[in-house]
Amino acid sequence: MFGSQFKIVIGTFVVAFFAFVAIFAPLLAPFNPLSQDLFNRLAPPVWAERGSWTHALGTDNYGRDVLSRLIYGARVSILVGVTSMLLSCTLGSLCGVIAAYRGGRLGSFIMRFSDAHLAFPEILLAILIVATLGGSLLNIVLVLGISSWMVYARVVYGLTLSLKERPFIEAARAQGAAGWYIIRRHILPHLLPMIIVISTLQVAQMILTETALSFLGLGVPPPTPSWGNVLAEGRDRLFVAPWIANSAGIAIILVVWGINLLGNGLRERLDPRAGARG
């Protein structure tokens, strides 16, 4: 097994690389990802016969540069991953804290609702929402954000329940602290390490789900380059031009691996159950 230190370093390196690519996409991409070149359709990548460095990863069915589409796709995929994670994180943590801190009927309603939601297939829900609202970048973020709040709610609920009974919370209440103040000052700081760990892993999950949705044609509407779109387009030419789907697939695998490595490393470091206490 790798040590947590090693995981964090490698994970951070991979994630930083993709973040860099996403941020500086206009400077790095050799071509406009949308400009078509119908005379140069399905050009092979550099390692194949007749390949050239002009289109290092070849071109797709419309003659668009695959490398450029992947570079811009990183933008879309990471943006979708991070914003939907932020949405579900805020939603889920809030619900979890309120359910645990308030307790009573509201609390059990929130938690029963999350149980019910947990039992509902994520993809099915996404199909339902996208089919009714239509596909757009915003809708995808909404779908992904809403479909995974329960993960946070459950973990935060459990942690808050035990935190609530800690003597320092009672000490704060004895001084007149109440409600939001206690949550903000005394509960959230203790939840943060756990939330960071889940969030990291959730970004990877979000990117994968976005890819799956796009692959099914329910994601970011084409021609916007997202990794899922590139993969879906590659599917139709899998035998003629395998490099399209392959390079998109490798990009997805790499970033998800990197994020998971980072997340697991952080968990080993920060999770109170792993022993080391902050």
Binding site: P167, F168, E170, A171, A174, Q175, R185, H186, P189, H190
Partner: peptide, 16 residues
């Protein structure tokens, strides 16, 4: 009126 608790380990927020 103020209170002093039994467990001095637990009644201070460890992150404060």
């Amino acid at each position: 009126f103020q209170m002093v608790f039994q467990d001095p380990m637990g009644s201070l927020d460890p992150r404060m």
